[in-house]
């Protein structure tokens, strides 16, 4: 049985900088998303194992587990999320975006990301959540 009531898309913001988490939480929260936070890749993976999210916003340089490793873990069989993943970083060397896509990210943005752009991207990526239904059916 499914409900006709649309649920708010759930976003996990993963960044070791508290102010970045606060910033993204504020932007996405005001835009109607349900936002949770993780301070590093390990926390993100633990959170994803407990709660399925509709979108992940992941930093690159983090202690304990960096962003690329985090995305690989999220895409691994253990977590197995098919939800979109946006990586956001100050790193904009040639190859950084390629590395993100190889890890499994859907989009790579370079900081600073304008607030309205982040909201637009999040809205676009969570508009069609059919992948979640497919996963539920598969499970």
């Amino acid at each position: 049985m499914t409900s006709d009531t649309p649920t708010r898309a759930r976003v996990l913001v993963v960044d070791d900088a508290a102010t970045v988490r606060m910033y993204h939480n504020s932007l996405l929260g005001e835009a109607g998303f349900e936002v949770s936070e993780a301070a590093n890749g390990l926390e993100a993976v633990e959170a994803a194992l407990g709660t399925p999210f509709d979108l992940y916003v992941v930093d690159v340089n983090m202690p304990k587990m960096n962003g690329y490793a985090c995305v690989e873990a999220l895409r691994s069989e253990t977590v197995g999320t098919a939800a979109p993943i946006v990586m956001i970083s100050t790193e904009d060397r040639p190859g950084d975006a390629d590395r993100a896509y190889r890890a499994g990210a859907n989009l790579y943005l370079v900081k600073p990301v304008a607030g309205d752009r982040l909201v637009r991207v999040a809205t676009m990526l969570t508009a069609d959540r059919s992948w979640a239904a497919e996963k539920d059916v598969a499970a």
Binding site: T19, V20, Y23, S26, P112, G115
Partner: peptide, 12 residues
């Protein structure tokens, strides 16, 4: 013109 920097300062 940096929105994140502005947010960080305003929040602090």
């Amino acid at each position: 013109d940096d929105p994140f920097l502005r947010f960080t300062v305003n929040a602090a």
